[in-house]
Each structure stands twice: as C-alpha cells, then as structure tokens.
Design a protein around this nucleic acid. Structure first.
Lengths: 223, 223
DNA sequence: GTCTATATGGTGATAGAC
DNA sequence: GTCTATCACCATATAGAC
C-alpha cells in the first residue's frame, strides 16, 4: 500500500488507521536519524543500527532511501495537518480561528519536533531543487501537500485583515515571517523528561503572541 | 596564515586586506555549492567543477572539506558582523538602535543570501552535534562568534524593554522568534537581475515591521 | 600552484540463505 | 520477514608529474 497504513476495524468497531508495526518502527527510527544528521549525512546503515537491525529489514519495506524519506515526510505532514484540521473551518471571526490554529500548530512543532524537522528539510530540499529527476515528482507532490497547509494560514490572515483585525502589507512576505516565527522551536526547543503540559503551552503562547502582534493584532491574546 | 588574508600595500599606499584570489574564489564557489545542495550532499568535486578546476586546486589551499566549510562560515559571519558593527554602539534609545541593526541585518540576509545560508547550516550542524570530534572544536569556536552576534540583539531588545519601548515576556524565546523572522528571506528570497535597491529595502521593511510589532513596539517604524 | 592518477573507505542497493 | 554477503560506485584525501 502506498500509504503505509491499512484500515482496520478495532474492538470498538471504529475504523481507524493501524500501521503495520514494522513500517512505523522504521519510519520513526529514520525520523530520528534524519533529524540528528540530516538526510544526506544519514546512511541506511545508521537507520538500521538505530533499529537494532540490518538494512535488509529496511529495504524489504522501502525500495530506496529516498522513499524512506518521503515516507517520513508524509507521516509528519499527516500529524501536523491532523492537529489543525479540526479548527480550519471554525465559524466566527478569522482572527479567532487564526489564534486557534497558530497555537495548535506551534504546540505540534514542539511535540512532534522530530517529524517537523524532517518536513522542514523536505521543503528546503525541494526549494533547492537538489533531488534527482524522478524523486522530484514525488517530493513535488508532498510539497504541494505542505503548500496546501500553509494556504490555510494565508487565507486566514488575509481574511482577518479584511475584517480589520490584522494589519500588514504583502501577504506572501508576512505569511513567511509568521511561519518562521511559529516554527522556530523546532530548532532550539529541547523536550525534557518530566515536562508539564503548562511548560510547553507557556512557551507556545509567547511565540504565538509574538506572531499575533507581528501581524498587527490588537490587544491581548487570551488563548 | 590562518586567516586566509594577507596584509598588502596597495598602489595608494593603504594597507588593506587583500585575500589571495585563489582562496576567495574557492570560498565563493564552495558557498554556492553548499547553499544549493547542503554540506553533506556537496562533494569536493562539485566545488572543483564549479570552479572550472579539479580538486587538486582545492586541497592545495584547504586541508579538508570541513576546513573549507568553516572557511565559508567564517567569511559569512565576517560580512554579517561588518554590516551591523557600525551601529551596535549607537547612542540614544535602544529601540532606535534595534531598528537600525535589525534593518541592516535583514538587508544583509538578502544581499548575502548564499553566505547567510551556509552560516545557518553551520549553526544547525552545531546544534545537532553532528560533526566529528575535532571539527566540533573548530565549529564551536565559530558558533561562539555567531552567539556573540545574537547577543547584540538580545541585549538591545532587553534594554529597549527596560526603557519601555518593547514589551515581551521571556528574552530567550523572543530573541529566537525575532531572529527566525528576520532570517526568513534566506529561504525564499530570490535575487533578480535588474533589481532596484528600493525593492530589496521594501521587503526588508516589511519583515522588520513584523518583528518590531512582535516585540511589542508601538507606533510606526519610520525606517 | 594545478593537474592526473590512485589508494582507501563508505554507501546504496541486490541476491540468496534461513 | 530478516539476515549475511557482496557488488558497483562515489567521495575524501594523497602522491607525484608538470
């Protein structure tokens, strides 16, 4: 299956995605390695070592290193998208919708830091156009996916500006500045062991506040 | 010479740094390659090809690929630092100093995008700790250099807050958000051929405005 | 100072045993 | 489904000709 997940019926009778464990294990080990060393510097043997296995296992499930990468990329995008999805069509003023999706996005950047960084590198790779001809098509698809995601934010801040709640000039420039700010924790945030939920949300609030004001939002955030 | 530059007397009798051209040519070709494909994915042959030479030339001037990278990193940091240096001790309110250095920093990100990206990757590499034991020491030194640079901004926004011109909670989190926003053009800005100075400064102003407001700055920027 | 070999090790990928 | 063994290739770095 191209998706890497099958639909299975649980004991509760709910149909939900249940990945075959081998594949997800590989995906997560790969995500760790790609985050730590980057795609190019990571060897398939590295991933295998992390798994406590040899590369035979990996090549049985993924035809190539590039496919392994796109697998992680897709998995990461799914998680990011899923966090925002419930709120993207929330009724009411656009600015309130923005607050919600910006917040869950930022929390997701911290909670799924590893996957988020691989997604980031994938976008970077695509922007540089440094992939082989055929991989380009695959990666282009995934970047399309990711562009659809950023469009959610673009439309939202645009609408909020129309409604008089935000104030900025060029949308394209502004949405980039905003995203970079919201994504920033993937580069410096280090998850700690006994970390409270409040600690994470506290950091996220500050980042979202920065972006909120940057967009020209008035008053307090009250997340 | 460890610096890669000799002091030479020009025909005007002024002593100024004159890099031996071979070295700088290599440095710039390497910067191009590192930006386009990243450090790990760039081979020394790639750099040589870009130079229209073979790797013998490169290894005559740089002992290793890693040294080539740190050479580019240092060169990039020098340029970035040099742009801000004239204003870092400017008298007057800290907020005015911030406006100046934030603006020249952002313009520099666009004008020296290639070098700026290599510096970025160097910092990233260091944060990941993905270098060999001995390179670590060298890179650590350079990251120290780069940290000193970001401290300029940290102190400035901190002081501006004390003077009542900025308003934010945690300095560490805020300075990261701010830097990410100011650095954002290195990922999406594409220099065009007949580009006017106004076009570049126009983009920079919008980015700096976003950051200024994000920091809690009041009123207009008036750069 | 730059080039043309070349030594040496690692990497992606495959074949076949179990 | 996973492992071992192996191939072909590419990359870093060096040695020595010019």
């Amino acid at each position: 299956m191209a998706e890497g997940e099958d639909m299975a019926t649980t004991t509760l009778g709910v149909r939900e995605p249940v990945a075959d464990d081998s594949r997800t294990d590989i995906l997560l080990a790969a995500a760790d390695c790609f985050m730590e060393r980057g795609y190019a510097a990571t060897s398939v043997d590295d991933v295998a070592r992390r798994l406590g296995a040899t590369k035979g296992r990996i090549y049985h499930h993924f035809p190539s290193k590039a496919d392994l990468f796109t697998g992680v990329f897709r998995h990461g995008m799914d998680r990011i998208y899923a966090a925002v999805e419930p709120y993207r069509n929330m009724p009411g003023p656009a600015v309130e919708r923005w607050k919600k999706i910006a917040f869950v996005h930022t929390v997701r950047m911290m909670r799924s830091k590893t996957l988020a960084r691989v997604v980031w590198e994938g976008v970077e790779m695509h922007l540089r156009g440094a992939t082989t001809p055929e991989q380009r098509v695959v990666l282009a698809d995934l970047v399309q996916y990711r562009n659809g995601y950023s469009d959610i934010f673009r439309r939202t801040i645009s609408q909020a500006r129309d409604e008089g709640d935000f104030d900025f000039d060029d949308v394209a420039i502004t949405v980039q500045s905003m995203f970079m700010a919201l994504n920033s924790p993937i580069f410096w945030y280090v998850p700690r062991d006994g970390e409270t939920e409040e600690h994470v949300t506290g950091i996220a609030k500050q980042i979202v506040t920065f972006a909120y004001r940057g967009l020209g939002g008035k008053g307090e955030l009250n997340l």
